[in-house]
């Protein structure tokens, strides 16, 4: 079972929590300066180390050997960054069976050790990523500086190398026009706010990714705890906003949610943006306890399935924009029919 098919804490607001550590290996330049020979040497060293620790659960994905669709699909599930889709360099991903634990090899740093969990689960994600980071440190020579901590290619990652992020569903705050204010105050407290698809994507809309900016000067555990404190406030605010919305504009809210459900259950053509927004509304319906709405896990699986890359991967062929919209509508409709029949 993949991690996104499981339930997690505070799932009404938080879709997933992710923790990653940036780590580099002694004796090598950072990835963008490596030549071909050093690249394959380093890949071998890392893959061997991970497989020595845990030979059974990790499998290796060489991004160069994948087609565009497969890479898009990985990015849509947040396993690689969208920028990597078009990278010509040889990069690899080691990923475990349930997809919650992975090591991205030779992206900006030699290793990005990443754990992702359903709902708001910073402790567990931190524990999982750290376990792997520490274990790898016992078998690899990691660059560590007394003054600066773990050294990284980009100065924004130096220190703990820790980046913790959560993907939030915040339709309530958006509807009440509170989001801008919340985002500003988060930014002032040293957090980065991005759109659903991370770096470069729009921050508008009902899904946000929040992560720490500071990686140095605090222990990794402090960073996690600070993140937890700030996020709990955010989660509470979103719940309040939803409550307010429901109490004051119940009919309008119900109308919007049931309309979106109707579109998803009946459309013959649906673009990604519209499907994404409708799924967001349906997710809100589920959180408000409306009857006959799919579970969070089903909705997240659908969000993953409807991406441009994932749709084509599922159909097993390359599709143009209209063909994708048809396939997407069909897929969603089928899912909704199955859910109602069950």
């Amino acid at each position: 079972m993949s991690w996104y098919e499981e339930h997690g804490p505070d799932q009404d607001v938080v879709i997933s929590t992710r923790v990653r550590f940036a780590r580099n290996i002694k004796g090598y330049k950072f990835p963008h300066l490596l030549d071909r020979e050093e690249t394959s040497e380093l890949i071998n060293i890392i893959v061997e180390a991970v497989q020595r620790l845990d030979p059974k659960s990790f499998h290796l994905v060489e991004l160069n050997s994948l087609n565009l669709t497969d890479k898009q699909s990985l990015a849509e599930r947040h396993l690689i960054s969208p920028q990597l889709i078009n990278s010509q360099q040889n990069k690899c991903l080691l990923i475990n069976r349930e997809e919650y634990l992975s090591v991205l090899i030779l992206d900006e740093d030699h290793m990005r050790i990443q754990a992702i969990n359903a709902g708001f689960n910073p402790d567990q994600a931190f524990e999982q990523a750290k376990n792997l980071a520490v274990a790898l440190e016992s078998v690899l020579e990691i660059v560590y500086d007394q003054e600066f901590g773990y050294l990284a290619a980009c100065p924004t990652n130096v220190g703990t190398g820790l980046r913790i992020s959560a993907l939030l569903h915040v339709p309530g705050l958006e509807y009440l026009n509170q989001l801008k204010y919340m985002i500003d105050s988060l930014r002032r407290s040293g957090f980065t706010v991005r759109g659903y698809y991370g770096e470069g994507s729009s921050e508008q809309g009902q899904m946000l990714q929040i992560s720490n900016q500071i990686t140095l000067g605090k222990s990794d555990l402090d960073l996690v705890n600070q993140f937890k404190t700030i996020l709990s406030v955010f989660i509470k605010q979103e719940r309040e906003a939803r409550k307010h919305w429901f109490e004051h504009e119940k009919i309008k809210l119900q109308d919007r949610i049931y309309r979106s459900k109707a579109i998803l259950s009946n459309a013959y053509l649906i673009g990604h943006e519209e499907a994404f927004n409708c799924l967001s509304d349906v997710r809100l319906g589920r959180a408000l306890g409306f009857v006959g709405f799919p579970d969070y896990t089903d909705i997240l699986s659908l969000i993953y399935l409807i991406g441009v890359g994932s749709i084509q991967k599922k159909e097993g062929q390359i599709l143009n924009s209209e063909q994708r919209d048809i396939a997407r509508a069909k897929l969603i409709k089928k899912h909704f029919a199955d859910l109602i029949n069950n």
Binding site: E137, Y144, Y150, L216, G217, K218
Partner: peptide, 12 residues
Amino acid sequence: IHGGHIHHVTQI
């Protein structure tokens, strides 16, 4: 970047 904290606090 790190708001004045230029010392790495603890290893893991």
